[in-house]
Design a protein around this nucleic acid. Structure first.
Length: 271
DNA sequence: CTTGTAACCTGTCTGC
DNA sequence: TGCAGACAGGTTACAA
């Protein structure tokens, strides 16, 4: 489920039920996800007022009035289930507000993570330090990407997945942005021309913006907190569409494997 | 420093 | 129906 648009969708969903409320109870049903959970999680959150729910890269951020920020990552299979009718096997953490609403952090594969840190030191947190600019913010510019790509022989696909260069992109939206901008995923970063980078930047912004408007993409899990599906997968140009016609030229979409992950692209439109 | 691969863990789908 | 194998939105440790 979770690249930037899905995490943004989840954060907005949580904001609606959490902001202004207090945590009445926080229960971890196992000691770890990908990494150990903070042992004082319940103690530090219980009674705290939730000031704001936001996002940085693929991390959800929850600020409390105690000067703490809860950081969560959904990994590959993480979901936030609002007011579950029953507790499921992979509901690992249960958050209950003073209003009595329950959010279950469910994550079958347990690639997700959760930590608690002081808000004042948030940017220095190991999970966030070194993360690149937000693609929908002012930091992602043609000049920034040109510098990030310069002299690199790694394929542009891999570079765009590197969270240190740009925050929040994942396999789906990199494939989509490269198709929109006509760049072959295997092209070495240093060989991408300035004019192509000038197309790539708005392509990234466009695909992320449209995906957020659609409520993200749904694959095996639903994207939104309230159980509503995201619909952006219906707008995928190439991702997951091997052998189907390219939306621009109708030539069959190709699938290749790069560093163990599928890349989808059009041979004719992407050089 | 850069690059590529394997590993983490569970579930789902396909083909035999 | 059973079973093996491939694959899945991410990150990170490690080797070269």
């Amino acid at each position: 489920m979770p690249e930037l648009p899905e995490v943004e969708t989840v954060a907005r969903g949580l904001a609606r039920v959490w902001e202004g409320r207090r945590f009445a109870r926080v229960e971890a049903r196992r000691p770890d996800l990908r990494r150990p959970l903070p042992q004082d999680l319940g103690q530090r959150l219980t009674g705290a007022r939730i000031e704001r729910v936001g996002r940085r890269a693929k991390y959800g951020l929850v600020d409390t009035d105690r000067g703490d920020t809860l950081i969560f990552h959904l990994g590959m299979s993480g979901r936030m289930r609002l007011d579950p009718t029953e507790i499921e096997t992979h509901d690992h953490i249960l958050f209950t507000t003073d209003e009595g609403r329950v959010v279950a952090f469910n994550d079958a594969r347990r690639f997700g993570s959760l930590d608690l840190t002081e808000t004042a030191a948030l940017d220095a947190h190991p999970l966030l330090a070194g993360i690149g600019p937000e693609p929908l913010g002012p930091g992602l510019t043609e000049a920034h990407l040109a510098e990030a790509f310069a002299d690199r022989i790694a394929p542009v696909k891999a570079l765009l997945l590197d969270q240190r260069l740009v925050a929040g992109l994942g396999n789906i939206y990199v494939c989509e942005a490269l198709h929109i901008s006509g760049i072959h995923p295997e092209r070495p970063g240093g060989k991408v021309k300035r004019a192509e980078i000038a197309k790539l930047v708005p392509a990234i912004r466009e695909v992320l913006t449209q995906a957020i408007e659609a409520g993200g993409s749904t694959l095996r899990d639903y994207a939104q907190v309230d159980g509503e599906l995201g619909y952006f997968q219906k707008q995928w140009r190439v991702y997951g569409r091997e052998d189907e016609g390219c939306p621009a030229c109708a030539k069959p979409v190709q699938r290749i494997v790069q560093s163990g992950r599928s890349s989808f692209f059009c041979k004719r439109c992407q050089k």
